[in-house]
Design a protein around this nucleic acid. Sequence first.
DNA 1: TAATCGAGGGTACTGAGTGCCATATGGGTG
DNA 2: CACCCATATGGCACTCAGTACCCTCGATTA
Lengths: 263, 263
Amino acid sequence: MGALRTPIWCYVLHMAAAVTSGDDPKPTMRESLVRAAFQLFLERGFEQTTIDDIVSLAGVGRRSFFRYFPSKEDVVFPDHEGCLADMTAFLRGAPLDGDPVTQACDASRLVLRMYAADPVFSVERYRLTRQVPGLRAHELSVVWRYERALAEHLRERGADRADGALRADVVAAAVVAAHNHALRTWLRAGGEGDVQAAMDEALGYVARAFSPAQQSAQPSARAATPGAVDGAGGEDEQVVVLLARKGTPLWRVVRDVEGALGE
Amino acid sequence: MGALRTPIWCYVLHMAAAVTSGDDPKPTMRESLVRAAFQLFLERGFEQTTIDDIVSLAGVGRRSFFRYFPSKEDVVFPDHEGCLADMTAFLRGAPLDGDPVTQACDASRLVLRMYAADPVFSVERYRLTRQVPGLRAHELSVVWRYERALAEHLRERGADRADGALRADVVAAAVVAAHNHALRTWLRAGGEGDVQAAMDEALGYVARAFSPAQQSAQPSARAATPGAVDGAGGEDEQVVVLLARKGTPLWRVVRDVEGALGE
DNA sequence: TAATCGAGGGTACTGAGTGCCATATGGGTG
DNA sequence: CACCCATATGGCACTCAGTACCCTCGATTA
């Protein structure tokens, strides 16, 4: 397996999102906000809930909300930033001699697992995003980032082929569509049933259409972990110098770093 | 060719967007707004331009802006509402015995033609959407509606297959990805070169991966027109009763009608 | 001529998001 | 102990998008 390189910004993203792991003793501000927001969104709807409603229910200052979430929509997807980071780390750590399409499929299973980890929350969120156009749009841009990460991986790993870039874009889109199909079916059913099985079928269909020799598309490891991530190191790292004012919230740093690294 | 059914809401959409066709003698308000907006967006950026800036340059009242565009973002995509309507009409009018995948490819060529019709405008808009996250998100939700229209068509026409719904979603995503790949490549090149050729190649790749018998993917008619559209009629039409207050702008009607019809 | 209707203008309001500053808390260091 | 500094949070004021409501004006029609 190739050397695992985990650039700094992955850690930054993790910091921004992994705060969710606290529990009973003292819920973090991030948790309180998510909890309060969802309670109100489900009670009276997304658009009928103001930021002031949320922060007063959570018992915190209004300004704090925007320190933890860049927008009202983001509080509905509190775990995606971290999940995207996991996926990126997984892809970067994937063996260079493996099949990139299979790796992309496995990466999308990572995302599915995040949904499956909390079915109740996922189903509630699904109902919300189906009804509110603004949330649907926001979800689209979240999903787009996953798709872009997959496409980038496929492009890098499949650069030898002719039409590599085209193939990368199409396969990434197909994988995401298959993932979404399985996920949505499961969510519509209220989170009952075997998502994994539906996912296997959906990804199998994609892999059969695109894999070189009709190869079967069983996951390379059924419950693949994000890949052991070791300390940053290696030769061709990029250094990003970022100037930020003092009050700058974490998510903004993340955004800027991404911007500096992105296409 | 099957009976062409063109439901009322297609016409509503056309009304909302076809106003763009006026010319020199007296530019419509819609045109003036688009022109003023783009001038300012290109001069000083999207976020640095307020609605007040736009309307004062166009010499109209601020309130009028929101009569023609539901949001600041929409003024950047003034032609998509009509294009989506064209695509829907084309798909509904497509022969029942044709290959749905080929029809979906042809439908996406319709969208490409809209971009190709005004290369300068398209390239300018592309530069804008690449830089402004808000516009990118808005474009994603526009593209999502095209993809959904394609998927719906594929689902209806391919309902005989097992896994019809999955296949429909995946193929639609692949077609859109191929379209976007060809389009973006052309836009990045400044609108120079043969988009059609790139599009043929990209769609050919998709069709080869998904068509039943490795069939070639030449467009059924190279420059397919949106399909002759005759008066509304037919047996199984839905009737949508919509109550709207008097001042309600057209786009809102459109949105509500869509909402009533959509899933 | 009066009634009506539609396009557009004007005003005031809500609510998201931001910049800036004040405050508290806690860990060091003289 | 006094002091300093970094971090976390609250509070205030502001901008700007988007909306509700009402007004004006010109054209059409009874």
